[in-house]
Amino acid sequence: MLQLNVKNETSRLRAVVLGTAENNGPTPKLEEAYDPKSLEHIKAGTYPLEEDMVREMEAFNAVFQKYDVQVYRPKLIENYNQIFARDIAFVIDDIFIKANILPDREKELDAIDHVIGQIDSSKVIRPPEEVHIEGGDVMLWNDHIFIGTYKGSDYKDFITARTNMHGVNFIKELFPNKIVKEFDLVKSKIEPRDNALHLDCCFQPVGTNKGIIYKSGFREEADYTYLVRLFGKENLFHIEREEMYHMFSNVFSITPDVVVSERNFTRLNNWLRSNGFTVEEIPYAEIAKQEGLLRCSTLPLIRD
Rank of each mutant, 00 (worst) to 15 (best):
T10W: 03
L13H: 11
V16M: 04
V17E: 02
V17M: 07
A21Y: 03
N23Y: 09
N24G: 13
N24W: 12
T27P: 00
K29C: 04
K29I: 09
L30T: 14
E32S: 09
E32R: 12
A33L: 03
Y34P: 06
D35H: 14
D35G: 14
L39F: 07
A44D: 14
Y47P: 00
M53C: 10
E56P: 08
E56G: 07
M57V: 06
E58D: 07
A59D: 05
F60K: 11
A62I: 08
V63Y: 03
V63M: 04
Q65T: 15
Q65P: 02
D68L: 02
V69F: 04
P74H: 11
P74I: 15
K75S: 02
I77A: 03
E78A: 13
Y80F: 06
N81I: 11
Q82A: 02
F84G: 08
I88L: 04
I88F: 10
I92M: 01
D93H: 04
F96W: 02
I97C: 02
K98Q: 14
N100I: 04
P103N: 15
E108A: 02
A111G: 11
D113C: 03
V115R: 00
V115Y: 00
V115M: 00
D120C: 07
K123Q: 09
V124I: 15
V124E: 02
I125F: 05
R126T: 15
P128I: 02
E129F: 10
E130Y: 11
E134H: 07
E134T: 06
G135V: 13
D137E: 07
F146V: 11
G148R: 05
K151M: 09
G152T: 13
F158T: 11
F158I: 08
I159T: 11
T160G: 06
K172W: 10
E173D: 12
E173G: 10
L174P: 05
F175E: 01
V180S: 00
K181H: 09
V186E: 09
V186P: 01
I190D: 13
E191T: 15
E191S: 15
E191C: 10
N195L: 03
A196Q: 05
L197A: 06
K210L: 10
K210V: 10
G211M: 02
I213E: 01
S216C: 08
S216T: 13
F218N: 03
E221W: 07
Y226G: 03
Y226S: 00
R229I: 03
F231L: 14
G232M: 04
E243S: 11
H246C: 08
S249I: 15
V251D: 04
V259C: 00
E262T: 09
R263F: 13
W271V: 12
W271C: 04
E280Y: 03
P283E: 03
E286I: 06
K289G: 12
E291Y: 11
E291V: 06
G292L: 06
L294I: 14
S297L: 06
S297F: 05
L299N: 14
R303Y: 09
